[in-house]
């Protein structure tokens, strides 16, 4: 086991897969000479050459579009969108093309590509460097979406994503990049797509979350443990496919469900989680399902106060947990 940051987990997955499989290449804005804005791919261009580490123009539709074509032609592209806030021009290529290729060709073609993008707030990124985009994509059949929150998951899920035969979006919370450190297995390993993790066991309520909020919720849970309330934290890790068994198993055990995400509440991932629980575990529930999410405002402001008002805090989550446990 080695201790790494999330960023290092991402880097090692890319590095190992590019070393292992010649079909793997990366493309995106500043991924080459600059080594990515977070310095994830620093040195990659020298190691793997300009053919496999491609600096692109500021043209997201092209980045994804080229990757779709390359994937159909047998390559394993890893397309990077520099910030999730810039992904919108590529929406058509992702949703209209990549997600539909297997279905449209009746299984004749697949689209084995990865779209990596840093997302999320809490880093004073202001309006155009803080957004969460998962809800815009998780509705779409044909796309897989992973949201690692630990270094091991970042490396293991990205490795799985690169080896997957279908398009996978890998959403990396940028605040976790250097903030979150953890043990990562040595050597070649993967984390399966579609499998949630129990980040913390508890019996009094289930907190279903993902991304940075896994850590915020865990902090709240530790706080509540001192009050005698044991919260179970379910880290979805994959938003699609979603691990229904783990969600339902946890809720069946605790009978109380709190869903926490940073993305806007309305129509967010929590809405689907709540619907799954309501449809399949209603008679296990001892309290109404509850959500703590980002507010339904268009963006996160730059001012510290705005940012704090947006991001679900340890206190907000702890309060909701307390109320739900006492219900």
């Amino acid at each position: 086991m080695a201790t790494k940051t999330v960023l290092e987990g991402v880097r090692d997955a890319l590095y190992n897969e590019m070393s292992r499989d010649e079909r793997v290449f990366i493309m995106g804005e500043d991924v080459g000479a600059r080594g990515n804005v977070f310095l994830i791919t620093q040195g990659f261009m020298d190691k793997f050459g300009r053919q496999r580490v491609i600096d692109t123009p500021l043209a997201e539709a092209s980045i994804v579009g080229v990757a779709v074509g390359a994937a159909m032609a047998g390559m394993r592209p890893v397309a990077e969108i520099q910030f999730a806030d810039f992904i919108y021009p590529a929406y058509n290529q992702i949703v209209g093309e990549a997600a539909k290729i297997r279905y449209r060709s009746a299984g004749g073609n697949t689209c084995p590509m990865v779209i990596r993008t840093p997302y999320g707030g809490g880093v004073r990124g202001a309006l155009s460097h803080s957004v969460s985009v998962e809800a815009l994509f998780y509705h779409v059949p044909g796309l897989k979406i992973v949201v690692p929150s630990t270094p091991a998951d970042a490396q293991g899920l990205l490795t799985s994503a690169i080896r997957d035969d279908d398009p996978v979006m890998c959403l990396e919370h940028k605040r976790t990049y250097r903030l979150i450190k953890g043990e990562v297995p040595e050597g070649d390993f993967t984390v399966p797509i579609g499998k949630a993790a129990i980040a913390r066991e508890g019996k009094d309520l289930s907190v279903i979350t993902y991304g940075l909020m896994r850590h915020t919720a865990t902090e709240a849970a530790e706080k509540l443990a001192a009050e005698g309330i044991e919260a179970e934290i379910v880290d979805l890790r994959s938003i699609r496919p979603m691990d229904r068994e783990t969600i339902l198993g946890s809720v069946t055990k605790t009978r109380r469900a709190l869903i926490v995400h940073e993305d806007n509440k309305f129509g967010g991932v929590g809405a689907e989680v709540a619907a799954i629980i309501a449809e399949e575990a209603l008679f296990e529930l001892d309290a109404p399902i509850r959500r703590v999410c980002g507010p339904d405002v268009p963006a996160m402001g730059y001012a510290k106060e705005y940012e704090e008002a947006f991001m679900p805090s340890v206190e907000r989550i702890a309060t909701a947990m307390r109320e739900l446990a006492a219900y």
């Binding site: 008679f283 296990e284 529930l285």
Partner: peptide, 15 residues
């Protein structure tokens, strides 16, 4: 209003 035994019970309690 949710308090007390005359109140509505959760699905789990009813089951």
């Amino acid at each position: 209003q949710s308090g007390g035994n005359g109140a509505r019970h959760s699905p789990a309690v009813r089951r």
